[in-house]
């Protein structure tokens, strides 16, 4: 269970990214987050694993006040929260395997990991996860040799290495073409259904939201403007979220 209570984020330059946002996510949900660019979706996701420090408000996750932990405790929380990104955020010059293994950094012995030594189980786990996302033969390629879709799969494999209980996906398909987008979304759906991992995924296209989401929330200028079933977003709601001039295209 993830609870967001009165979350507000004001950046140093005065931009209000989130304003008094509150909602809950039950275990096993695939929550989609929609909204215009700059509506606060990315900030919201990054506040949950504290890549961005909230200005005020509380975040509770399975009884831990995530918004107020620090140091070692924060790292223990983070390692149970996987994250995938719009631009994949792989280390281009490292191998695919190294990228995937970096998902274990929160678990392994720091000194051994810096020397590049990972336990055998983790190596096996890495290869298993690469098989799972359909690129078992790319382990030794450099990450920048892969295509966009393959790179996002590496991102998913890296997140799976964390054995996460919660997966944050920040516009995971915005840099991919529609066919690839569905393939990536199906992986997220599979992770959600088969592994029981709660997924919070921000998306641009309403049809993806309605096809994959079990629930949807919408943000507009940092405020929560919708919280309900994806199918509940009709044309009227759509205009509320995206503004009066918006036309549905997908």
């Amino acid at each position: 269970m993830l609870q967001i209570k009165n979350l507000t984020k004001i950046y140093d330059d005065g931009t209000v990214a989130l304003k008094d946002v509150s909602f809950e996510v039950a275990d096993g949900e695939l929550l989609t987050v929609i909204g215009l660019s700059g509506s606060g979706k990315s900030t919201l996701l990054r506040c949950i694993n504290r890549l961005i420090e909230p200005t005020s408000g509380e975040i509770w996750w399975n009884g831990v006040k995530v918004s107020h932990v620090s140091g070692e405790e924060l790292r223990r929380v983070r390692r149970k929260i996987g994250m995938i990104f719009q631009h994949f955020n792989l280390v281009d010059r490292s191998s695919v395997l190294t990228n995937v293994l970096s998902g274990r950094l929160g678990y392994v012995n720091p000194i051994a990991s810096i020397l590049g030594r990972f336990p055998k189980e983790d190596l096996e786990r890495a290869h298993a996860n690469l098989r799972r996302v359909g690129i078992p033969d790319k382990a030794n390629n450099r990450a920048d040799e892969l295509s966009g879709g393959q790179r996002q799969r590496v991102g998913i494999a890296r997140a799976l290495m964390q054995e996460p209980e919660l997966m944050l996906a920040d516009e995971p398909v915005a840099s991919l073409d529609p066919a690839l987008a569905h393939s990536i979304m199906r992986y997220l759906q599979q992770i959600n259904r088969d592994d029981g991992i709660t997924v919070i995924c921000s998306l641009h296209f309403l049809d993806l939201v309605q096809q994959y989401g079990t629930r949807a929330i919408a943000l507009n200028e940092g405020r929560l403007v919708y919280d309900g079933l994806p199918s509940g977003i009709d044309d009227e709601r759509f205009k509320e979220i995206y503004g009066q001039e918006a036309e549905r295209i997908g």
């Binding site: 990054r46 223990r76 929380v77 994949f88 955020n89 929160g106 964390q162």
Partner: peptide
């Protein structure tokens, strides 16, 4: 900055 943020998100410490 992307990879930095991704690796931080895995729970890695500063040196890692």
């Amino acid at each position: 900055e992307g990879p930095l943020e991704a690796v931080t998100a895995t729970g890695a410490n500063r040196v890692q």
